[in-house]
Design a binder for these strands. Structure first.
Length: 198
DNA sequence: GGAATGATGTACT
DNA sequence: GTACATCATTCCG
């Protein structure tokens, strides 16, 4: 039987690319009044302050990206395309302005609650995209700026769980071609309908 | 004050 | 594969 341990603060302070890679296989858990939902992270993307124009923090601190400049282990939640929200994990030292976008989860707990929130029965459509997983997990703008170690939204690692095989490729929807996207090789839970390009 | 834009998802061909 | 819904933030004037 595997045991769960909350990720220590030092985990998030590592270089952003390392954190993005290491977050694959970890567990995202949300305890909401409706119940608990949890999933295994299978896809992430790193956003760097240096040389990465696609990073929200690239042009300095604004009202929206304020939490990206907070301490490592802070959640950064923002609205995209006027209708979807995305969840990021702030990394590195405070003030650096780097983060990891959580792009897809393998649903583990509270699957029925996820399905109700998403309005679909199809398991593969619950968390296979940044906007989808935010909706399925019941995350909203209230979670922008919360501490992922001391709030209802937390990240865990499982002792004894096998290390997934992680592969790297270019990010999705970004014109800047950098190998900053990480996902589990062959996973059916990743975004883009599982059709991954390397 | 106003217009352009986007780290997406869904529906439809 | 392609169209488009929809709005907070950003940037320009």
């Amino acid at each position: 039987m595997s045991r769960r341990r909350k990720l220590p603060a030092s985990f998030y302070r590592a270089p952003t690319v390392e954190v993005a890679r290491a977050l694959i296989g970890k567990l995202l858990v949300h305890d909401s009044p409706e119940g608990r939902t949890a999933g295994r992270i299978v896809e992430t993307e790193a956003y760097l302050f240096e040389g990465d124009p696609a990073c929200h923090a690239a042009r300095g601190e604004t009202k929206r990206n304020r939490s990206m400049f907070g301490p490592a282990g802070t959640a950064y939640v923002y609205l995209i395309y006027g209708m979807h929200r995305c969840l990021n994990v702030v990394t590195a030292e405070p003030g650096v302005g780097e983060a990891v976008l959580i792009r897809a989860l393998e649903p583990l707990e509270g699957v029925e609650l996820m399905a109700a929130r998403r309005g679909t029965e199809l398991l593969r459509n619950l968390c296979s995209g940044p906007g989808k997983l935010v909706q399925a997990m019941g995350i909203d703008s209230e979670h922008d700026g919360v501490d992922l170690r001391r709030s209802d939204l937390t990240v865990w690692e499982e002792s004894g769980s096998e290390e997934p095989e992680v592969v790297v490729g270019p990010r999705v929807g970004i014109s800047v071609e950098l190998p900053l996207r990480f996902w589990v090789e062959g996973s059916r839970w990743v975004s883009r309908g599982g059709k991954v390009k390397r």
